[in-house]
Each structure stands twice: as C-alpha cells, then as structure tokens.
C-alpha cells in the first residue's frame, strides 16, 4: 500500500498510536536527533556575543533546546552564530571558519551588524552583511537581539532542519545540501590595497536592484 497524501499518513499514524503502535520514519528520527542537538561554534565577534553568553547562562538556559555545547573548534560544530560586526579584516577568517565546518552546517546571523553592517554600516572597515560571502539560514534583527530572540532563531532553525529531507524521494528531490552537493567551500576574500577583493561573492549574494520612483 502506498500513501502519498501527508494528511492521510498523519491520520493513519494517529489511528495506530491509539492502538499502541508507533510508526515513524528514519528521516524523522534522524532530523529530530540533528535538530535537538545543535552544537554551535564558540565564536564571539562583538557585543552580540555577550548576549549569546547570557543565553547560555542560567537564566535563559540554552541547554533546554539542546544547543548549549559550544565548541571552540569549527570541526566539531554544526552551527555558526555570527554574533557581531564582521569587519573586512575579519571577513577572510569568518569564511575560512565556515569552510572548515563539516556538512551539514547552518549559519545564524545575530544582530543588525552581521545582517547588513547595522549602525556601523558607514564604516570603511565594516562588511555590509556576512551574507555577501556565506549563505545564511536565519537572520535575527536587533542591536543586540535579546536572548529570547536568539532562542527563537534556534527554534526556527530546528523547524528548518526538521523539514529537510535526507533521502531522495524522487529524482533530484533533496533539500539538504550535504547530501546534494557534498562539502561546500566558498572562496575566501583577499585583503586588497583599498578594499577586500572581491567585495562580495556573486554566487552567494545577489544585490537588490535599486528601485526608485523618480
């Protein structure tokens, strides 16, 4: 018997549960495990890092969501929380750290600076958004975002992970990059004479076209 309608599948599952039979998929278990034990990279850039530490502290207790194991090494981390202003001098290191993380890996940009440069956008040494070089999964606005906002971002990421498929149902139906393309390496920008070269990675970042009425 093949059930393709997810609603029908859900109905059957609850019917069976009433009879004491629990049915699930490998994918669900696998994603549940992955999303409930995200190991972030211990990587503080600026002010937002302090709020990140507070989130891991006793009051907000990130451990409730299984993400309290901050790893100092990128090789052991699943999640990079870009917590603070990324300067041009720091940008190559951020990209390199991202490249060193094993797939599947995720990025949360925490705060206005990491999203777009924030209040320091006019600075000559400030990268105007880390998404110019690496793909970002969840953005948190705020300067700095409150710990609750970081927890919300984490829950959003968990939902995103749970929705990913690990096994192709049909040809080409794979939403998890790790199983799709293998390890992704992004080119590391170089520090040039006046600016970083290149100023953004055209494969990752597509600048908004300017829209002006006049």
């Amino acid at each position: 018997m093949e059930i393709s309608d997810p609603q029908e599948m859900e109905g059957l599952r609850s019917e069976l549960q009433k009879a004491g039979v629990f049915v699930t998929t490998m994918e669900f278990i696998y994603n549940w495990g992955r999303s409930s034990s995200i190991w972030p990279l211990q990587f503080g850039l600026a002010c937002c890092a302090i709020e990140m530490i507070c989130t891991a502290g006793a009051r907000f207790d990130l451990a409730r969501f299984g993400a309290e194991v901050f790893r100092p090494s990128p090789r052991q981390a699943d999640l990079m929380i870009v917590s603070g202003t990324v300067t041009k001098k720091m940008a190559p290191q951020v990209v390199r750290l991202y490249n060193q993380m094993p797939e599947p890996k995720y990025v949360i940009t925490m705060g206005a600076c990491a999203i777009s440069g924030g209040p320091f956008k006019q600075g000559y040494n400030v990268l105007k958004g880390v998404d110019r070089f690496i793909p970002v999964d969840v953005h948190i606005p705020g300067c700095p975002p409150r710990p609750e906002a970081l927890i919300h971002a984490l829950v959003t990421l968990q939902k995103k992970i749970s929705a990913q498929t690990t096994l192709p149902r049909e040809q080409g139906d794979v939403s998890n990059r790790a199983y799709d393309k293998g390890d992704q390496h992004y080119p590391v920008p170089q520090l040039g004479a006046h600016d970083i070269v290149p100023p953004f990675n055209p494969e990752v970042w597509h600048p908004e076209p300017v829209r002006r009425d006049s």
């Binding site: 850039l45 300067t87 720091m90 320091f120 006019q122």
Partner: peptide
C-alpha cells in the same frame, strides 16, 4: 589588533 575596527571615530565625525 583591528579585527573589530568599526570606525567609530570616523562615523562620529560625520
């Protein structure tokens, strides 16, 4: 130094 040089002084002068 300089990995968090956010140009506060330059921004403040403008």
């Amino acid at each position: 130094f300089g990995y968090l040089h956010r140009n506060h002084e330059k921004i403040a002068e403008n």
